[in-house]
Amino acid sequence: MFDDLPPDLDRLHTLRVWHVMWLQRIDAKIAALTKRQAEEECGRRNRPPQPEWIVELGIGDRRPPLQVHAGDCYIAGKRRRPVDRDEARRLLAAGLTSCGHCRPDSALGITELSSHPAALTAAAQPPVRVVHDRRGSRGQGASRPIDPWTESHVVRSASRS
């Protein structure tokens, strides 16, 4: 018979004490993990439901609303409050911007938000770029707008001497 335990009683008692200490450590770790898992499960069950729509709020005393988001949008900031479907539609119709990622205006069935013709024509125009020109007086640069329809998109800078 293969027996790898020591033959004397003192060493066997030492091994038994050592193993009891390890079993106590293992039992304590099992109890701590069981308690942690029970607390996590209780937290999952008691978590309030995720709102369907949220409004991202600004900074300041009055904290004005900034954007409307879907409840599960990851882009929404930390300053937010839940709103119901009717309030989200009302805020979007009043001119509040919608998130470009979760697109709550599409999900709410609002396709045309702007009835202002000036806003529609401004959105159709290309953005104006401002280019810094280094050839200004006394080494100071001058800024000038560039019309993307008429001028070249390549800007040549002044050569340094």
Rank of each mutant, 00 (worst) to 15 (best):
R36W: 11
A32F: 03
L66K: 09
V83N: 01
E40Q: 15
Y74I: 09
I54Y: 00
L33M: 14
C73Q: 04
R63G: 07
Q37M: 15
E39M: 13
P82Q: 02
A38V: 10
K35H: 14
G43Y: 08
W18S: 11
C73E: 02
E52A: 08
R85C: 05
P6Q: 02
G60H: 03
R45E: 14
R11W: 05
L5D: 05
H13M: 07
R36N: 14
H13P: 04
V83W: 01
E52Y: 02
I75R: 13
R25A: 07
F2L: 10
R81C: 02
N46G: 10
D10T: 06
D8G: 02
P82D: 04
D27M: 10
P49H: 09
I59A: 13
H13N: 10
R45I: 13
A32C: 05
L33E: 15
W53A: 00
V68H: 01
W53H: 01
P51R: 00
F2H: 09
Q50G: 11
P64E: 08
I75C: 13
D4H: 05
D4L: 10
R36Q: 14
A32D: 04
G43F: 07
D61L: 15
Y74G: 13
C42H: 15
R16S: 08
V17L: 12
P82F: 01
P48E: 14
T34W: 00
G43I: 06
I30G: 04
L23Y: 10
H69E: 02
P82A: 11
R45P: 03
L9V: 10
L57V: 05
Y74D: 12
D4F: 10
R11T: 11
F2C: 08
R85V: 04
H69W: 00
H19D: 10
M21G: 13
V55M: 01
E41N: 13
P6N: 03
L66Q: 10
V68T: 03
Q67A: 12
G60Q: 06
P49V: 14
R25S: 06
Q37G: 15
H19Q: 12
C42S: 15
T34L: 07
G77K: 06
A76T: 04
P65H: 05
L23I: 11
T14W: 08
K78T: 06
R44G: 13
I75M: 14
L57H: 03
D8V: 04
W18F: 07
N46R: 15
